[in-house]
Design a protein around this nucleic acid. Structure first.
Lengths: 214, 214
DNA sequence: TACTTTACGTCAGTCGCTGACATTAGTCAA
DNA sequence: TTGACTAATGTCAGCGACTGACGTAAAGTA
């Protein structure tokens, strides 16, 4: 604990039930993520072994894999909570709001939340740009889970079966693509650009691509 | 060789230069893919080891990894050619055609080509539905490479920089999502549904999602 | 206090994948 | 035909992510 610069408060997806046992378990989880992030940032992803991460967190490698299913999930361990936030954000949107507006608003993080996670998000994006396995995990696990949330929400709102009507999946795919390009633009600027503005702009263009049919 | 039912003509991405050496090399490549497909189909993906595939193809495991970078690429080894087909298809579209039409037409395979590859595509989709590592490869490697082709073609047509204008990436993401949902619908029907019709319908809806803003 | 539960350590093993080096076989020129 | 040269393969040894089995100690509970 007591990370150097930012507190790096990794939220634990599992409820932190009362009791010393649960607190200790959560501590090792946070320690592992902190150790992983530190080594990934300094040495690189492929250049870091899970054994080294476990040693820095002062646990055995076996314990690391009891907390995280893959090496990549150490870097994206906080994404489960973000997914639930997205689910709630989508559900909280009024039913009479245009669907693309609902999706856009639910995908734009609150300024404060973004500021807290800024550094971590930048590291994730930078590592994803450099290491194929990280990029694959981001796409196939993280982004795919967001897609499923969007598909569920949109199909519910439209009152259609997502296995029959392709539109929920298309909207989800377009939305995730907007996130990807905004993140890439932001990463290319080394985090100096205004991410929320980039993301908002990209998401705002989804509704207008039909107008390209000149 | 001499596959049971269909010839299963795996196209080799590398040019088949004249000479016995190149022909033999291509033969081992085809043998490896055939062996992999057979074992994947009967035993399952995770349940098949690369050593078993190599033995069935009568080569060493080391040779397998000289021809294919990953186990998954044995299943998607013919995708490089398909990507080049997509590139050419996109480039062949007239400049004055609406961009979404160009993308749609380039993504819909000719009936004959589809018929030849039908079984193989079905196997790929079924394995991707069952095995996370296959799904991850499909998304992160195959589909991502298609996306890049679409982004390049669309940004060129629109005369914009894809790092500045988010629309090419959004169109690409929506298009790949259309492929995914059409493939899922087709797979859910065990290949009995009309894939080309499903795909055409899904792609056709991209231009109209902006109209959902009631 | 005694009993149960749970997080962790240890150990051994599988499997995807790679570097190094030897060997065979195709190629090509003399 | 012969003798290099080279490209494809085999062999071997090893790394690293990940897992099952089993034991242990600490935390929770009656």
């Amino acid at each position: 604990m007591k990370a150097s610069s930012p507190p790096l408060a990794f939220p634990s997806l599992a409820e932190i039930e009362p009791g010393r046992r649960s607190r200790k378990k959560n501590k090792t989880r946070v320690d592992l993520m902190t150790a992983g992030v530190k080594l990934f940032a300094t040495r690189g992803f492929d250049e870091t072994t899970t054994t080294e991460i476990a040693e820095l967190a002062d646990v055995s490698q076996r314990t690391l894999f009891r907390h995280f299913p893959t090496k990549e999930s150490l870097l994206y361990g906080d994404m489960e909570e973000l997914r639930l936030n997205l689910r709630e954000g989508l559900a909280a949107r009024p039913n009479d709001e245009p669907i693309l507006t609902s999706v856009r608003e639910a995908l734009i993080p609150p300024e404060e939340e973004f500021r807290e996670q800024r550094e971590h998000r930048l590291l994730q994006a930078q590592l994803a740009a450099r290491y194929p396995s990280v990029s694959a995990y981001s796409r196939a696990v993280v982004q795919a889970s967001w897609e499923r949330e969007i598909i569920a929400a949109v199909s519910k709102r439209l009152g259609v079966d997502p296995m029959v009507d392709p539109r929920p999946e298309i909207i989800a795919g377009a939305s995730i693509s907007a996130i990807r390009i905004a993140t890439r633009q932001w990463t290319a600027s080394s985090g100096t650009a205004n991410y929320i503005e980039l993301l908002s702009d990209a998401l705002g263009m989804i509704g207008s691509i039909g107008e390209l049919d000149s």
